[in-house]
Design a protein around this nucleic acid. Sequence first.
DNA 1: CCAGTGATGACAGATGCTGACATCAGCTGC
DNA 2: GCAGCTGATGTCAGCATCTGTCATCACTGG
Lengths: 199, 199
Amino acid sequence: MGRWAPGAAQRLPQAAMELFAERGFEATTVAEIADRAGVTERTFFRYFADKREVLFAGQEQFASAFIDAIDAAPDGAALADLVAAAAAAGGAVLQQARGREFARARHAVIAANEQLQERELLKLAKLAAAVAERLKARGVTAVAAQLGGDLTVSVFSDAFNRWIAPGETRDLVALQRESLAALGELAAGVTQPLKARRA
Amino acid sequence: MGRWAPGAAQRLPQAAMELFAERGFEATTVAEIADRAGVTERTFFRYFADKREVLFAGQEQFASAFIDAIDAAPDGAALADLVAAAAAAGGAVLQQARGREFARARHAVIAANEQLQERELLKLAKLAAAVAERLKARGVTAVAAQLGGDLTVSVFSDAFNRWIAPGETRDLVALQRESLAALGELAAGVTQPLKARRA
DNA sequence: CCAGTGATGACAGATGCTGACATCAGCTGC
DNA sequence: GCAGCTGATGTCAGCATCTGTCATCACTGG
């Protein structure tokens, strides 16, 4: 290795999280993050494409949990089962990786700044697109696959938001089952009126 | 009025759309947009909070179509009907306001740049939250309302994406019915396994 | 011991965005 | 008419984000 302390890729996100939590995202400059991590501003931008990206390091593992769950599902699985399995797999990774407290802290930082919300939404949109692509590869129609991708992310996100609510102690996957139940009830009203409406 | 040609608020988005379509979003500077509109860069930032926002002028009308449709629905309406009505109202506004060709051109500009996609996703997320809020005001439970807001936007977006596909001539609301049908089929698989699974 | 490699530092510059103050047409009250 | 106010715009200075380019230097392989 080089003449500098290794692990800059790990120190930078940690320094960023600390500073963002202390003073907020906009009140923190990239130079300050780099200083705390012991590198220069230029090096920060060698590791992360922009200032926001430092909060989204290592999301590939999270996204691949969704994908792998779909690819690993048995052949006859219904679309609803695929959605549930993918969301559950993503939730499991999230719970094990860093835990609820870390998720809460990270979410608080993101919730306080629209630029960060935008980045998170883009990541989730890409995840939904990737899920839809794997669904199509299994033979799901294009329309159902696109909606299935969106729904997977919606079920995950809605459950996640309740999972990190103050005082909540239930398991993330249990909360996803709750969201899925609401989805089932909602959609029970859509199938029948669509054919029987005004009959 | 002042000593300058009026209508800067209209000329700026038009100049921006032209330049973005010609050379792309990143290759266009705010100074160039302002020049074409006959104002200074500083004036641009008086009308729009940032460079991206110029493409999202006048979205309040679009969002209020969703909200108004929910508030105007009859008392006994099922959640699924509210979702369908809101998406249909938003679609109607979009079709009448500027038409499919304008939507295609605008979407092409946005699809070519991730910064613009982020902004659009943020607008849609806020719309989903606003829809969820109105659903809760009608007595829908928090869990169902959050999911209902997401679903409204998903149904709208999925149908919109097909609406602007090359060669597509069907009505936007007709495409939404297609998305809703896919939703019904998907969710038909979720209600029953949730209670009967492993029975 | 020497050339190559790869990560980092140093520096200059374009662009996005903001604050502060000046300017000037039209309106208002007298 | 005329003085003053108002509101939109221009002008200017400045900070922060992000990028291109080149130099530096520890480590590696021969």
